[in-house]
Structures are given as C-alpha cells and as structure tokens.
Design a protein around this nucleic acid. Structure first.
Length: 272
DNA sequence: AAATCGTTCAACCGCATCCGG
DNA sequence: ACCGGATGCGGTTGAACGATT
C-alpha cells in the first residue's frame, strides 16, 4: 500500500500492523462501542485505547462520515442538490462549510456529488465546470429542472403549476419552465435561513431572474411549504438567450432525470 | 460467459490551522 | 513567540460494481 512503501525500520514495523482499506463490521462495532462509552475526540489516543488497528485519522473519518448518528445515506434530494448549487456558488469548494447547511450530509458526500454529477456534465460538454458558460447552462437547465422536481414531490404541487409540468413533458421548450414557482425575495440578508423557514437565494446567477428570487422550504426536511403566485415572474433567458439549447432524449419519467441526463449543447460551440 | 470500460464513493494523503504547553 | 501534537479540510485514489462489448 501507499503508506507502507514510504515507511522504513521500526516505524515501518509499527505501522504495518495498522489496518487500511474498508472497515469491517467488527471494527465499526468496536468504534461505536468505544465512542458510546468514552465520547469522540482525541482520535489518536482513541485509536490506541480502543484496540482498533487504525490511525486516529481513519477512526475520525469513519465516525464522521459513516457511523455517527443522523448521518444520512442515499441519494441527495432535489432540494439538497439545489442548496449545494447555491452554496457552491457562494463559497466554492468549501465542502465542509456547505455540508454544515445540509443536516446529515457530510463534506465527503457533497464533494463526491459535485465531482460525479455536476462535473460529469461539464466533462460531457467539454467545458470547464467553473466557466461562465457552464454556470449559465446550470441556470438554464439544471436549476429549473430541480425546481420542478421539488415542485413535483411537494404535497401542494397538484394545485400549483401542473400545467407547466405537463407542457414540459409533452414538448420540451428550451426556455426554462419555472414559471409560477418563485416568490419575490425582499430580504437583503445574505443568510439563507430565517426563523421559521428557509428562503434559498440564488446569487449564483448574476443578472438572472433567479438572482432576486427565492422559494420557501420546510425547515426540517427541505420540503416545499408554499409558493406565492401573486408575485410570480417568468424565467427569462439572459445573456445567452441566443443559444438554442436542446435536451437530448429526455426521459421525463426517470427519477434520475437531473442526475443522469446529458445536455446536447452542440450549438454552444459556435459562441465559444 | 468473459473481458473491458465507466462510474461511484469510501478511504487515504498532504497540507493548513488550531490549540495547549 | 515558538513548538509539537491534534484536528480539519480539500484533492485524489482505487476497490467494487454495473454496463457494455
């Protein structure tokens, strides 16, 4: 393994006893039992005292990313994905900071999501995931689609904008379809949280209609609580309005629509 | 059925920062 | 102020697994 190659002499002997790689059930149980009795922290001494043949770092990582109570496993919800996009726009690759705003999710999981899902799209398009054009693509397609998923999964969605979704399903329109789902943001506070609800902002997209809009989601599980139709605005294409985006073979029944569908943006190239 | 390829994600590494002595 | 150990963070790796050939 990588570490042992670098080790020599007695240090090597000592560390060769250390286990690496995937954790076994017994190791997990041992770690859980030890932390239950003694608490977490002081990872190096914990690693020695517990009898685990692991480094303190390894114990810490296993606990924080997997074993700790309330750590969520499984796919990120559309609400969580939206939050990641928004927070990444503000903070960049500050995975830990982003994770602090997604209860139960770890920095590692969010980082993996970004690399495997978001950057995958960028790679497919052969553009830099940090480039303006990719950010615009996110704005034009990903966010509206996530919003639709949020809306679709909402208990209150049936009476809000079903017609919009049906229109999309029958005849995809390259212009984003988030019509009627946003409430005007009147807050200038950069904190996305309010006392009784979360209003998620989209500073991600300068000049976009999303910039000064937010939507309200449930505090506990990110479920959409309400939409305000009295002050809705249609999405408008902004500075890339001349682009004729087209989705490639969209399967509207797929649960993984947003995750796995690539965008066909060949026509972007003539503007690059 | 076997080989190859692509994707995912748990785990590791190096470096930065924090903190107590 | 300095030092050394502990902890946190972000980038990277590689085993496992599913999809494709």
């Amino acid at each position: 393994m990588r570490a042992s190659k670098k080790m020599t002499g007695s240090c090597n002997e000592q560390l060769e006893q250390l286990r690496r790689g995937p954790w076994t059930l017994d190791e997990d149980n041992l770690l859980i039992h030890y932390i239950t009795c003694h608490g977490e922290g002081r990872w190096n001494s914990l690693a020695k005292s517990s009898g685990l043949k692991r480094t303190g770092k390894s114990c810490r990582l296993r606990w924080l990313n997997y074993l700790k109570p309330y750590v969520k496993h499984g796919n990120l919800t559309p609400q969580e994905q939206l939050l990641i996009l928004e927070l990444h726009s503000k903070w960049g690759n500050r995975w830990s900071k982003i994770a602090q705003n997604l209860p139960g999710r770890t920095d590692n999981e969010i980082k993996n999501y970004w690399r495997t899902k978001v950057q995958k799209q960028a790679r497919h398009l052969k553009i830099d995931s940090n480039s303006k054009i990719f950010v615009e693509a996110l704005k034009q397609f990903w966010v509206p689609r996530l919003l639709e998923k949020v809306e679709h999964s909402s208990p209150s969605s049936s009476s809000t904008s079903t017609s919009t979704m049906e229109a999309n399903q029958k005849n995809f329109n390259p212009q984003p379809q988030g019509k009627g789902t946003l409430t005007e943001n009147t807050s200038s506070n950069s904190n996305i949280y309010s006392s009784n609800s979360k209003r998620i902002m989209f500073p991600y997209f300068p000049g976009s209609p999303l910039q000064n809009n937010g939507y309200i989601v449930d505090n506990n599980n990110f479920g959409v609580m309400s939409f305000n139709h009295s002050n809705t605005q249609e999405f408008r294409s902004s500075d890339i309005s001349t682009f004729e985006f087209q989705m490639a073979e969209v399967d509207w029944t797929s649960n993984d629509l947003v995750d796995d569908t690539f965008w066909n943006m060949d026509e972007l190239w003539q503007f690059k």
